[in-house]
Amino acid sequence: MEQLSRVGDLARNFRETRLSTLKTPQEFFDHRQLSRPADMNEATTRITYNTRHFSGNYLLVIGVLAVYALLTNPLLLIALGFLAGGFAAINKFAPEPVQVGSQVVTQKSLYTALFVIGIPLLWFASPVSTFFWLVGSSAILILGHAVLMEPGVESEYQGVEGV
């Protein structure tokens, strides 16, 4: 029960800190602010500003790409579902050893069977290549957007405090 409250607190904290910074689609896709940076210094400045300014939108982009990666790799989805469902089922239905005929089935033996089946299934699903695809595609989209979007006027006054 305590773990559920911690997960709830983490979700609430994530929603308050990251998702509260979501910008509107009109601001995120404002084609009037698109331009090529003059030099590498300006590109670096834009990346620094825009990754902070659009951090919620960029997390949303990563989330959408992750869902797309899972949906286009059904074997990975099955393997993850099998492992997660197996853990949940073992914890819920077999906390104590069970006598089946002349054999005693323990939680340890069920976890061993789950890993013997689940790990090869996960291996064939190629999660490492999916992870690197997710990292690469996210980096290209986010860095491309951050470099091409001119910072707004408010970026000029970012370090200035009110008098």
Rank of each mutant, 00 (worst) to 15 (best):
G144T: 03
V153T: 13
S5E: 14
V147G: 02
V147Y: 01
D9L: 11
I62Y: 08
N13R: 15
A38Q: 13
L110K: 01
A94I: 06
W133R: 12
P25I: 04
T44F: 14
F82C: 10
I90E: 00
Q99Y: 04
P97Q: 09
V64E: 05
S129K: 11
Q107N: 07
G144I: 03
A113P: 09
D30I: 00
T48K: 06
G8T: 03
L59M: 08
N50Q: 07
Q107R: 15
V163T: 12
L76H: 05
M149P: 00
T130K: 13
G118A: 07
Q107S: 10
R52N: 15
L80V: 12
T24F: 06
R52C: 10
T48Q: 00
L121T: 03
K92Y: 14
F54Y: 04
L19Y: 10
H53I: 01
S126K: 13
L10P: 00
A43L: 03
L34N: 02
F14V: 00
L122P: 04
V116I: 15
L121R: 01
S5V: 14
L10I: 05
I119K: 03
L83T: 12
V98T: 13
L114H: 09
E42G: 02
I78C: 10
Q3L: 14
V100W: 07
P37Q: 07
R6V: 13
F115T: 11
F93L: 06
F132E: 02
A139E: 00
P97M: 09
E2V: 10
I119T: 06
V61P: 07
Y157P: 00
D39E: 05
M40L: 15
L134C: 01
G162Q: 13
A11D: 04
F131D: 00
A84D: 06
G56Q: 02
V135F: 07
N13S: 14
S137F: 12
P151E: 08
E150V: 13
A146T: 02
T106Y: 04
F54R: 00
R12A: 14
I78L: 15
L75A: 09
E156Y: 09
R46K: 02
S55E: 13
P74E: 08
D30E: 04
L10D: 03
F132C: 01
F14H: 06
Y68E: 11
L65V: 03
V153K: 15
V160D: 05
L22M: 03
I47G: 06
R36C: 11
L70H: 06
P74N: 01
V135G: 02
L70M: 10
A89N: 08
E16N: 15
G162N: 15
F132W: 08
F131L: 15
L4R: 12
L114I: 09
F132P: 06
A89V: 12
L59A: 07
G56A: 00
R32P: 01
A113R: 11
E96M: 11
I78Y: 15
L65W: 03
